[in-house]
Nucleic acid binder design. Structure first.
Lengths: 184, 184
DNA sequence: AATAAAGTGAACAGATTTGTCTACCTGCAA
DNA sequence: TTGCAGGTAGACAAATCTGTTCACTTTATT
């Protein structure tokens, strides 16, 4: 990947996270990255293409760090839960936490046929899939249901952390997950 | 309240829900409502003030319908859970569901000092408070924790329903809430 | 050293943004 | 009938938006 293109994607992702997608103009991305407008439109046909590239970059980031974290998990349900929600906890308490890029994007793009909307759904499925695979290495009954529940807890924790500034949202969700998995 | 002003607020709320806040221009709101620009700026000093009025309107709507629904609940924890999540279920499956206006707004406005951000937090507290009061009429131990958990489940269900089109998100969350409250 | 690829800077177009202002209209009440 | 409150229509300003184009420079490779 050309370095200028990658730099553009990373700058755009950072600005989109902080300010939102419509509110971040092309000119700001160019000024911040120091890239010229002609170069941007050589690599991307439109702003939407740049948004998609930024989301794809973020998708890969998330899947990568999640898989790395999970590679340290024991093959027990409890350990998977611990790793997933501690991972979230670190994110929520990192310097630059502006909520989930995909949840935020879905707030701005509602058209069900938009490539952005489609990619949001794809990303959420990717995350769920990684957790499901790890859970499958444990002896876990009713797996499909439990993964769905964990997914819901993750979304709830992200939103609670972002909209209400509740920095312990991941720990709250972790306790809920433990309770839910222990029983049933 | 002047009828034109109220009409403006309701049109704006509807468009903000569907298209987002930045993506909805003043001109579209005026064309849709049939109100003139001069009238808008007589009632509101800026677009931000109109956004705040629309959010306030939505806040009142939500608190009103939630309280009405809860007034039919028995004084048991189980009944409160049933009412809250069935209420959500109806919303998710209604014709015009575009996610939560406040979650969506927090995706577009990240400045912690913005009046919009402050109102988002206020709204979430209002909802929690209504549920907490109802829960207090039941004999419920560890109430503060349980309310927080229910709040997290609500957020999770809304996001799952909106971003993934999971129409049964509220029912999934309801089962989780039942399990969580039964134990502990 | 020559060539080709990649990037820059700036001007420009055309549409769209929020917000202001003026002139006019309409219905109601004293 | 006079006057006023509330609304309309539309022009206008100034900024900002995405996207295009062109002439020039830098960088890397051979």
């Amino acid at each position: 990947m050309q370095p200028r293109k990658q730099h553009l994607i990373e700058t755009a992702l950072s600005l989109f996270s902080e300010k939102g997608y419509h509110a971040t103009g092309i000119d700001l991305i160019l000024a911040t990255s120091g890239v010229s407008k002609a170069t941007l439109y050589k690599h991307f046909r439109s702003k939407e293409e740049l948004i998609l590239a930024a989301l794809k970059n973020r998708d890969q980031q998330i899947l990568g760090t999640l898989q790395t974290a999970l590679s340290n998990a024991d093959k027990t349900q409890l350990s998977v839960i611990e790793v997933v929600f501690d991972h979230l906890h670190n994110w929520f308490n990192s310097e630059a936490f502006f909520g989930c890029n995909f949840i935020n994007a879905s707030a701005e793009y509602n058209d069900p046929n938009s490539p952005i909307t489609l990619y949001i759904i794809e990303h959420k499925q990717n995350v769920i899939k990684v957790i499901a695979e790890q859970l499958a290495t444990t002896n876990c009954d009713d797996q499909a249901n439990k993964v769905q529940q964990i997914g819901l807890l993750i979304e709830g924790a992200i939103v609670m952390a972002h909209t209400q500034g509740e920095k312990n949202a991941a720990l709250i969700a972790k306790e809920m997950a433990k309770t839910l998995l222990k029983i049933k």
